[in-house]
């Protein structure tokens, strides 16, 4: 039992939780009848996928992907040599000397991809809400089954 948790559950339980959250969103998208509820489900689905994507970049013991250049050693050297030397040929060499190690920083690439996805997601949510408002104006309801009923009987004002 202990082995099973150590080898199987512990490394993967985060992914399982994301799958469960995604399933909740997916279920709402199919089974809920209210359009706003469907949209909340869609957002939950979307954020579960974004969550999964960002989690691929996690490294144990790594720090945030912002390089701290206020470490004491380089600043001390610069102040001795003046400003010009830092930005010209010498600066290049110095930066090479303090090259960041990839294992010390979280993978930034998934962050970049998902950062734009979140903002685009809210813009598309806005479009979806606009569509549901315009449906409400025509049908007077946001319930899927009532809308379908009205379309079938042709009983709505356009």
């Amino acid at each position: 039992m202990q082995d099973f948790i150590q080898n199987f559950v512990q490394p993967h339980f985060n992914y399982w939780a994301y799958v469960i959250v995604m399933m909740i969103g997916f279920w709402a998208l199919i089974a809920k009848r209210n359009l706003i509820k469907k949209l909340i489900g869609m957002s939950i689905f979307q954020s579960a996928i974004i969550l999964f994507y960002v989690s691929l970049g996690v490294k144990d013991g790594a720090t945030i992907p912002i390089i701290d250049h206020h470490q004491p050693a380089p600043i001390h050297e610069v102040s001795q040599e003046g400003h010009d030397a830092h930005y010209n040929s010498h600066g290049e060499e110095e930066a090479h000397h303090h090259k960041p190690v990839a294992a010390e920083f979280v993978n930034p690439l998934p962050h970049v991809l998902m950062l734009t996805a979140i903002v685009v997601g809210v813009a598309t949510l806005g479009v979806a809400l606009a569509v549901s408002q315009s449906i409400y104006k025509d049908f007077g309801t946001l319930e899927e089954h009532e809308i379908l009923e009205q379309i079938k009987t042709g009983d709505f004002h356009d």
């Binding site: 706003i36 909340i40 954020s47 960002v54 945030i64 992907p65 979280v106 997601g121 809400l129 408002q133």
Partner: peptide, 28 residues
């Protein structure tokens, strides 16, 4: 997870603006 930029965006967008959009639609 160390994804500070993404967390910042989600705090501004998900918790702030998208809730306001939903409330605006519910109001109407």
């Amino acid at each position: 997870m160390g994804a500070v930029d993404v967390a910042f965006t989600e705090a501004a967008v998900g918790a702030g603006v998208s809730a306001v959009f939903l409330i605006a639609t519910v109001y109407n």
